[in-house]
Design a protein around this nucleic acid. Structure first.
Length: 467
RNA sequence: GCUCCCUUCGUCUAGUGGCCCAGGACGUCGCCCUCUCACGGCGAAAACACGAGUUCGAGUCUCGUAGGGAGCACCA
């Protein structure tokens, strides 16, 4: 049978990396088995669902290349079908209407809690055969026996039916609830493998009972552990619970994020680096760990750097360009992006770092970094810089080799160390003490700009020593 | 409270009874390279939650304890 998995996020909050990892595992499982991957938006909560959240799901999945074969389906568009199933359940006696007030339910809950029991609905209306239209509809859960979830990650997990209660499948306004819609959809869409967060494990026996009542085939389940913050707590916005797109905007590459996520709770021996193709080839849901894992931003950064170093310069242009645009930088005034990328990609961790550390190539700076200027733009270096200026001026072919030769030659002639000359030069042309190698820096900057900035640096020292 | 789940270096993990005085990776620290910052190279510190049991032998099996998590909605 063809494997069919699905990713079914609810657009009530922005899709974050926890959701993405679930999506990735589902996607990988489907791809590994040459199966199908369905995207379904669970937007039955019309109050809390937002278009912005739907947009993040669609854009995020596309950005990461987790393409779906079917969908996106929207549950809000399938209400007729859910009602049909609810009525069917009502007719065959697997469900019943209930008019218990919220106050009564609240009271039952409180009593159970105070007696040290698990709060459950007491089945008050179960045998009443009510027909009121404004009643909720409850599913008749079996009273005894047990439901065994044969989970691909968690193993056998058994639940006593006596622990479960008659859950509401339709609200008093007639709208269906989550546990019903999931089952109907998974059934209708022919989902063979449900891969989702282990926060749903407790819902699974209820859903299995509904599947049984419907006479439908029960899918395989795999409940994957949650992702925790670096502190081991629940993920919060600042550690990745915000939109996945934030990672894109911060200059992460899709393959780095995917590689990072796939190694969270899953491994293939000691292998750390996985191309998408390798993941698809070796991923198996059975190898997923059962325990939750904390995210580690440093490792993500390391992977991002790895992928950045190995990325195609041509390909990197687009995302880098977007980042520069976001910073209102006019790229016409500086080096070609491909040339910039070639030198910067080996020394930055994210595209955003790359953009930020390259600003001086595209715009003039008003002030020097105060510490760098204090340390390097000093009178002692005035004459050497002047000599260097003259020498650089004579260069005909502005390439690394001639630039380097001139700087080293000047240092030699004046009997000063390379570093003593290069660092002041760097501060003069970049405004600060950090940049690519000095020859790359000057080459990318261009002869004209290099010279004019060096001249300004010389003037700066002169003004400083005279005041 | 009740039900279910989890527990190897700071973090992600390898490990399916002897190959483990526990391996890899990120991070950290040290050294080397070096015009800055990085990259790179070399090296170091760093873990089987605890307690019983089974066994000739346990990180690996069983039970208990402690700690953590999830669920128990007319949310998904």
């Amino acid at each position: 049978m063809t494997i069919k998995t699905r990713f079914a996020p609810s657009p009530t909050g922005l899709l974050h990396i926890g959701g993405i990892r679930t999506a990735l595992f589902s996607w990988l499982y489907a791809r590994h088995h040459n199966g199908q991957f369905v995207l379904r938006i669970e937007d039955t909560d019309r109050e809390r669902s937002t278009d912005a959240a739907v947009q993040v799901i669609l854009e995020g999945m596309a950005w990461l290349g987790l393409e779906h074969d079917e969908g996106p389906y929207y549950q809000a568009q399938r209400f007729d079908r859910y009602l049909e199933v609810i009525n069917q359940l009502l007719e065959v006696g697997h469900a019943y209407r209930c008019i218990c007030s919220k106050e009564r339910l609240e009271q039952i809950r409180n009593e159970a809690m105070s007696k040290g029991e698990k709060p459950r609905y007491d089945g008050h209306c179960r045998a009443l055969n009510l027909t009121e239209d404004n009643a909720v509809v409850r599913f008749k859960n079996p009273l005894d026996g047990a439901v065994v979830v044969q989970d691909k990650v968690q193993g056998h997990v058994s639940f006593e039916n006596s622990e479960l209660d008659d859950l509401i499948i339709a609200r008093s306004d007639g709208t269906p609830t989550y546990n019903l819609t999931v089952v109907v959809d998974d059934m209708d869409m022919g989902i063979t493998d449900v891969i989702r967060g282990d926060d749903h494990l407790n819902n699974t026996p209820r859903q299995i009972n509904i599947f049984k009542a419907l006479g439908a085939e029960i899918p395989n389940y795999a409940h994957i552990p949650m992702i925790l913050s670096p502190e081991g707590k629940k993920l919060s916005k600042r550690d990745g619970a915000a939109s996945v797109l934030q990672y894109r905007d911060e200059g992460y590459l899709p393959e780095a994020l995917l590689n990072y996520l796939v190694r969270l709770g899953w491994s293939n021996g000691d292998q750390e680096i996985f191309s998408i193709e390798e993941m698809v080839a070796v991923f198996d849901i059975k190898d997923v760990n059962k325990s939750a894992s904390s995210i580690n931003p440093e490792k993500l950064l390391w992977l991002n750097q790895h992928y950045l170093k190995n990325a195609d310069n041509e390909w990197l242009q687009k995302p880098l360009n977007d980042l520069f645009m976001g910073m209102n930088i006019d790229l016409k005034d500086g080096p070609d992006l491909r040339d910039l990328i070639e030198v910067q990609k080996h020394r930055t961790e994210t595209l955003k770092d790359m953009a930020e550390q390259s600003l001086f190539f595209y715009m003039d700076f008003d002030e020097y970094d105060i510490n760098a200027a204090k340390k390097h733009l000093r009178p002692v270096i005035l004459e050497p810089l002047k000599a260097l200026y003259e020498a650089l001026k004579t260069i005909k072919d502005w390439d690394n080799n001639s630039i380097k030769t001139v700087i080293e030659g000047t240092a030699d002639k004046l009997e000063i160390k390379m570093g003593k000359l290069a660092q002041p030069l760097r501060v003069a042309v970049t405004g600060a003490g950090i940049s690519p190698s000095i020859d790359d820096t000057l080459r990318l900057l261009g002869q004209e700009k290099s010279l004019s900035r060096l001249l300004k640096g010389i003037e700066f020292i002169e003004n400083r020593s005279s005041s």
